[in-house]
Simulated scan of single mutants.
Amino acid sequence: MTDIILYDYWRSSASYRVRIALNLKGVAYKAVNTSLLDGGQKAPEYVARNPQGFVPMLSIDGHDLTQSLAIIDYLDAKYDDPPMVSRDPVERTKTLAQALVIAADIHPVNNLRILKYLKDELRQEQESIDNWYRHWIGEGFAALEAMAPETGLFGGVQPNLADVCLIPQMYNARRFATDMSPFPKLARIDAACNEREAFRKAVPEAVKPA
């Protein structure tokens, strides 16, 4: 059987999402560190397979899959337990909307290449960059807090795609000293998810190269 290979960077939140999904579904994989700091994602042989030059990339079934939500969608179609989205059209749409608050609205303006551009090209001070980061997290989290259930996870008893996207963003929020007091429901979901082995095994410190 051909190995399933995840081209990964330990601190990439998009890679973190895919690690969680693989763990939840019990899919064994081999991780290949692709350092964003060293430019491994821009190596010619990597870009030939992934033209955007981003992580993650999942090599599976003879395919090189890119974009974390697209990868998780593939995994969900191939390994249906536990499901990441409901088969009910309305519930599926709600979950996708919640996940996209993070994956489409918070994360793209706060990822490493944006922060580096702010610092290197626009000459912003680190304090301004950190404030930028916290602003967009706070705006997105305010919406998610309103969407979050009063009890349980976004997925109810079992984590779903919204939970898988939330937990890496919560990790980043803590890294940037975001005030989490306005988001008690998100904090509850984060704590509950991180009690599960699939989430604990995916945290950046657990996969950081020696």
Rank of each mutant, 00 (worst) to 15 (best):
G39W: 02
V27H: 00
R175D: 04
L144P: 08
I60P: 01
C193H: 02
A192N: 02
M1D: 11
L115K: 10
E195I: 09
D80S: 13
P44S: 03
R11H: 11
P44Q: 05
S68L: 06
W136K: 09
I4E: 06
I4Q: 03
S35P: 01
D3C: 05
M1R: 09
E127K: 12
V47S: 06
Y16T: 11
K42Q: 14
Y171V: 05
K116T: 12
D163P: 13
P83H: 07
M180G: 01
D61M: 00
F141P: 04
C165S: 15
R17Q: 13
L96H: 12
I5Q: 04
I72E: 14
L96K: 12
S13R: 07
D64N: 09
Q158S: 12
F183Y: 15
P51D: 01
V85W: 07
V32A: 03
E121F: 10
R49S: 11
M147P: 00
F183W: 15
K116G: 02
A191P: 00
L24M: 15
T34C: 05
P56A: 13
R123Q: 15
P89Q: 08
N33S: 14
E121W: 04
A14F: 01
K201L: 14
R87T: 07
A143L: 11
E45P: 06
N131A: 15
S59G: 11
I167S: 13
